[in-house]
Write a protein that binds this DNA or RNA. Structure first.
Lengths: 171, 171
DNA sequence: CGATCTTGGTTCAAGTTTGAAACAAACCTA
DNA sequence: TAGGTTTGTTTCAAACTTGAACCAAGATCG
């Protein structure tokens, strides 16, 4: 079938999106690099851990939540571990597994960085949108994200946080 | 002043956005890497050149349109030049300058890659949005992008495509 | 059991990005 | 017009990302 090119409206939307999205990511990275010495993704690793029960998550779970490859995560956690912000523990119920745990130091760094980060997100995004648009933004990207069921860099999933992944009951 | 944290609605929107945006970029990169042997940014370099008058653009202009640093662009153009898809010419009106020109080969590669790329963009984004949402998407990201006046990695600008940048008239 | 398949995670090399520093040409000013 | 500043671009080292390959340790099944 002959290509369904983008309509003019779609083109405009696409271009506006691509341009702004890249600017936003760059700005976020710069801000966090400045104030916390790490790129946005690494901040997100800390943030995600901080919300997990016991501030711990299995590597694969963490990778899935962040929508990144395990390989990328390994690299990031290794770096954060060197900085003392995260600690690797082995999973007691699956000897293959390892668990990333946020250290107290990591939690403190996160606490210190959070206000500046939120302020940036606000000034870049939400200060420029009305409440109606915020709702639209959510709907639009929820719809887009829904297109990736079982897609992305990932295959399997499980919802029990850091205890185990497959069929073995934990003590 | 005490931090203005995100409201629950803002949080939801932010998370949906961050997650989906990263999935989209990754998918785009993978698709283009597969079918054209280059990441999304490099495809965009070709695409941007193809739309410029004479399929040529000064490095700085190109960097500005793509919203990337000059350094990043240098690297990309060097790679594309090795592949024979772009050629560097010197600017006749400013001996400092260099101009990136799309080669015929580059144009052909672009033509071949375009349908698959558009198809991907469509299936990821526009197939999941109604026309109303497409309009909202444009408005939202235009608003966000507008927050970066003179920001981003760039300082100066000029609108004459590739002829010259500052005060000297061209022959 | 023991062979085999799958899953969790890391490693490695190649490619890309970053930000600062280096250069060179153009511009400005006294 | 010499000297200093700005602008256009590249270079360099360090950090990050990618995908494929690899190594264990579970799970499966005859």
């Amino acid at each position: 079938m002959t290509t369904r090119w983008l309509t003019p409206e779609e083109q405009r939307a696409w271009r506006a999106y691509i341009a702004a999205a890249s600017l936003v990511e760059d700005a976020l990275d710069r801000q966090l690099q400045q104030e916390a010495g790490m790129p946005h993704l690494y901040y997100s690793i800390l943030a995600t851990l901080s919300e997990a029960p016991e501030r711990r998550l299995r590597m694969t779970d963490l990778a899935e939540r962040l929508k990144i490859t395990r390989s990328r995560l390994t690299y990031g956690v290794t770096r954060l571990e060197k900085d003392g912000l995260v600690r690797r523990e082995d999973c007691r119920w699956d000897r293959r597994g390892s668990v990333a745990a946020l250290t107290d130091e990591g939690y403190r760094v996160l606490e210190r960085a959070a206000p500046g980060h939120v302020e940036t997100v606000r000034s870049l995004l939400f200060d420029r949108l009305n409440p109606e648009q915020v709702r639209q933004l959510e709907e639009i990207f929820t719809a887009i994200g829904a297109g990736f069921q079982g897609e992305g860099p990932h295959a399997t999933a499980e919802d029990v946080p850091w205890r185990r992944r497959s069929g073995k009951p934990c003590p």
